[in-house]
């Protein structure tokens, strides 16, 4: 569904991605784990068109997307929920959701999806008219995911959804992620610091080290790997 082939990205003189090749197949949850600064977020930003690869190709559903504008990439059904949630602080919860559906014209279906978002995260329904900036971190993460779902993505890219959240909220969010994948067949590319949690949720995983993919395997195999355990799972 999504294929990155030998993608290089430069930030000025910094060589952030040094030939990354990864693949996400339809219906999968794929996770990218690795240390800070390994290029995980850079990968997502490059796929969604915020950054341009200096070489290599990105193909989505058989179509080259590496030169496309972010808005055209969203239109293809590929939505990126950025790190740090990035809720529009002075828009209400409702307006934030409407922005997620910006490219859609089917008013009735949008309202139906809004209802579904409130079913998924009932707390958001209570906060409908509140400004996004007044929500708690967990509520903002739920809103960020709900907002992305409003674009009806076929592939959802989540960047650090557990960042800075209480364990109970993290659990709830990861349950929702797994449910979206199982019940609705949503394909998910997940970047996550919490490697243990990510590998429990995902089917397959890639391990990044300083801009390169160093390992790729089934999530359960990675979770059992000695090296991965030592480096990312905090146990020997």
């Amino acid at each position: 569904m999504l294929v990155l082939d030998d993608v290089h990205v430069h930030y000025g003189k910094i060589h952030a991605l040094k030939g990354v090749s990864i693949e996400v197949r339809e219906g999968e949850i794929v996770t990218i784990i690795g240390a800070n600064g390994a290029g995980k977020s850079t990968t997502l930003q490059t796929v969604s068109g915020l950054l341009r690869p200096s070489s290599g190709t990105i193909t989505y559903a058989g179509q080259r997307i590496d030169a496309m504008a972010p808005s055209d990439i969203v239109a293809l059904g590929l939505c990126h929920t950025p790190e740090g949630r990035r809720i529009f602080p002075e828009l209400t919860v409702d307006e934030n959701l409407s922005m997620g559906a910006y490219l859609r014209r089917d008013r009735a279906a949008i309202e139906a999806d809004r209802g579904r978002a409130f079913e998924l995260f009932p707390i958001l329904a209570e906060r409908r008219t509140q400004h996004g900036g007044t929500l708690s971190g967990g509520e903002q993460q739920m809103l960020a995911i709900a907002r992305s779902l409003m674009s009806r993505p076929k592939l959802l890219m989540l960047d650090e959804p557990s960042l800075g959240l209480a364990p109970i909220i993290v659990q709830q969010i990861f349950q929702t992620i797994a449910r979206l994948n199982q019940d609705e067949g949503l394909t998910i590319l997940l970047v996550e610091q919490n490697a243990a949690l990510a590998l429990r949720t995902a089917h397959r995983g890639y391990v990044y080290e300083t801009g390169r993919v160093t390992m790729e395997d089934a999530a359960s195999a990675l979770a059992a790997d000695e090296q991965v355990r030592a480096a990312y799972l905090g146990s020997i």
């Binding site: 969604s48 068109g49 915020l50 504008a69 972010p70 808005s71 969203v74 239109a75 939505c79 990126h80 929920t81 950025p82 990035r86 529009f88 602080p89 002075e90 828009l91 922005m99 997620g100 910006y102 490219l103 907002r147 674009s151």
Partner: peptide
Amino acid sequence: MDQETAALMGIS
């Protein structure tokens, strides 16, 4: 408020 996120929502 946030142009980058606006772009990720499909806003040109």
